[in-house]
């Protein structure tokens, strides 16, 4: 399956996706229920400790959704619910429904491996594998069974271009990824996620471990990528949320206090607690 897909360049995919996008919009006007990501009455537990309380949220296709809130408020937990990364932690439990593209991803017959291919993730600390730049990007397609060298080369190039890293690394694709700077490593991780052709990208404080200039490049990149992908980003930095997101959700002690367009949340918050947080009264 991959080998035929692989011949389709990212540009072509984009055109296809835009076409799909249009249809998606049409569908949405007919049927309000369909959204990219939807959580309903979501409760989440680490053993006996409840981390999320009754979270209900709808994220529309494309664009950037930011999740803000103080440390330990559950925003990362929520993010990791969406690609079932929390499955890896023993003793976790979930109640409620999480639907992605209309399908409950916690239904018993869900193919988690496939889900994670559709819902990519970028972590707080850049975590390239101790392999070459090329092998890092080709990792996803390879575990998917793609062996064709030309197809792989093409995917690597397109993914690196997609992550605005190609010009910096095109002459040293065989060098270790860990020799890159922190900011470059993070863009490499974004490229690595893009290589699997996801629909949704989850970003867990992707800029908290890198310097301001590299942060700006990532923010620009996120703004670019959100034309093709739905991006959900967790951030500690409220200015960052204000700069790059279309919608913002505010988490506090495991509850989603408020969800709305970023301009509304920041200029006209409905909840007192949201206002207190964004005006810097706590957190």
């Amino acid at each position: 399956m991959m080998s035929t897909n692989a011949k389709v360049t990212i540009e072509e995919t984009r055109i296809q996706e835009t076409a799909k996008h249009g249809i998606g919009k049409l569908n949405k006007s007919i049927e309000n229920e369909y959204c990219e990501v939807k959580a309903e009455n979501l409760n989440f537990f680490y053993g006996p400790v409840q981390a999320l309380f009754n979270v209900t949220v709808k994220v529309q296709e494309k664009g950037v959704a930011a999740l803000i809130g103080p440390s330990g408020c559950g925003k990362s937990t929520f993010l990791r619910v969406l690609n079932r990364m929390n499955d890896l932690i023993p003793g976790t439990r979930l109640e409620g429904k999480v639907k992605i593209h209309g399908k409950n991803i916690y239904a018993p017959n869900t193919d988690v491996v496939n889900l994670r291919k559709k819902v990519g993730m970028v972590f707080q600390h850049p975590n390239p594998f101790p392999k070459s730049i090329f092998d890092n990007i080709a990792y996803g397609p390879r575990i998917d069974g793609l062996k064709n060298k030309t197809a792989l080369t093409e995917i690597v190039e397109n993914s690196l271009k997609g992550a605005a890293l190609w010009d910096e690394v095109k002459d040293r694709l065989n060098e270790p990824a860990l020799a890159l700077s922190g900011g470059q490593q993070q863009r490499l991780c974004i490229a690595r996620a893009l290589a699997v052709k996801p629909r949704i990208l989850l970003m867990d404080e992707p800029t908290s471990a890198i310097d301001p200039i590299a942060t700006q490049r990532i923010e620009d990149l996120v703004r670019n990528l959100c034309n093709d992908y739905t991006i959900i980003i967790v951030t500690h930095n409220m200015q960052q949320a204000a700069r790059i997101s279309d919608n913002t959700g505010f988490f506090l002690q495991g509850e989603m206090i408020e969800w709305g367009t970023t301009s509304n949340i920041f200029t006209n918050p409905q909840d007192k607690r949201t206002e207190d947080y964004i005006t810097g009264r706590f957190g």
């Binding site: 990364m85 994670r116 990519g120 972590f123 990792y139 575990i143 690595r192 996620a193 699997v196």
Partner: peptide, 11 residues
């Protein structure tokens, strides 16, 4: 981090 990175790519 390596394990998580790999799982997140659908391994």
């Amino acid at each position: 981090a390596y394990r998580e990175g790999s799982f997140a790519l659908g391994a």
